[in-house]
Amino acid sequence: MEEILGTRQLARDTLVETAVRYAEDRHWEVVPGTSVQDTGLGRQCSCGHPACSAPGAHPLHRDWAAQAASGPAMIRRWWAEHPDAAILLPTGRVFEVIDVPEQAGCLALARLERLGLALGPVIATPTRRMQFFVLPGARDKMPDMLRRAGWGSSAIDLVCRGDGDYVVAPPSRMGASGTATWAREPTEANRWLPEARELISPIAYACGRAMAEA
């Protein structure tokens, strides 16, 4: 029992310290999300809705977009009140995210590496998605970029997350699936994010190939 409690405390410490590091090192705004709770009925979202569609993966506060902060004091206060809260990063401010299926994301990573293209951080979610960080402004241009790359906006499973949306950051726990992890961690080498147009052709190709194989 002491070992289990110690593991939980370590996870909580990791969440708050990681949230602070995102704010201080990357200047990313952070908001607290809900958490996954182990109950007698299994794992449930802390929001209290038994049929929650995104347990542990949605904002804790309704006005989360207005409350987003990059100040360590506020972040520590939030996690002192909700130590198991997921770390959510608003998109459309410092970065946007190209969100694709895991198989396509892995294919895209390999292709981008072969082409020698610069990459930003990449999240791998336990829901089998991969999320590529790019500079803001991509979402409005995405339909045109996909057409230029030879794909209709509805032809492939590719979503651009911008203003008004968010991603669940590692090491947050998401439902019964597991935790979000970094496929490409934030480092000094990828501090400067790429433009979406630099990556979209290889990523769209990978999405199309994965869809054809499926």
Rank of each mutant, 00 (worst) to 15 (best):
residue 129 R to F: 12
residue 142 M to G: 04
residue 28 W to G: 01
residue 92 G to L: 02
residue 110 A to Q: 15
residue 32 P to L: 02
residue 136 P to M: 04
residue 151 W to P: 02
residue 36 V to A: 02
residue 78 W to S: 05
residue 61 H to T: 10
residue 9 Q to E: 15
residue 165 D to W: 02
residue 174 M to S: 05
residue 170 P to M: 06
residue 42 G to M: 01
residue 123 I to C: 08
residue 212 A to C: 02
residue 155 A to Q: 15
residue 173 R to Q: 10
residue 53 S to D: 15
residue 121 P to W: 01
residue 211 M to V: 05
residue 214 A to G: 15
residue 111 R to P: 00
residue 58 H to S: 03
residue 23 A to H: 13
residue 193 L to G: 12
residue 19 A to M: 05
residue 41 L to N: 12
residue 99 D to G: 03
residue 181 T to S: 14
residue 20 V to T: 06
residue 151 W to C: 01
residue 211 M to G: 08
residue 123 I to K: 08
residue 191 R to Q: 13
residue 59 P to K: 09
residue 155 A to Y: 04
residue 113 E to D: 15
residue 192 W to C: 13
residue 139 R to K: 15
residue 176 A to K: 15
residue 109 L to S: 11
residue 155 A to G: 10
residue 113 E to L: 12
residue 157 D to S: 14
residue 94 V to P: 05
residue 127 T to H: 13
residue 31 V to W: 00
residue 171 P to T: 07
residue 153 S to P: 09
residue 180 A to Y: 10
residue 32 P to A: 01
residue 43 R to P: 04
residue 43 R to K: 15
residue 170 P to A: 11
residue 192 W to M: 14
residue 168 V to Y: 08
residue 28 W to T: 01
residue 43 R to N: 03
residue 103 Q to F: 07
residue 114 R to D: 10
residue 49 H to S: 14
residue 74 M to S: 14
residue 25 D to H: 05
residue 84 D to W: 11
residue 38 D to N: 08
residue 119 L to W: 02
residue 143 P to T: 05
residue 184 R to I: 11
residue 111 R to K: 13
residue 146 L to M: 10
residue 113 E to F: 13
residue 51 A to L: 12
residue 64 W to I: 10
residue 113 E to C: 11
residue 154 S to R: 14
residue 147 R to Y: 01
residue 182 W to P: 02
residue 176 A to L: 12
residue 201 S to T: 13
residue 211 M to A: 14
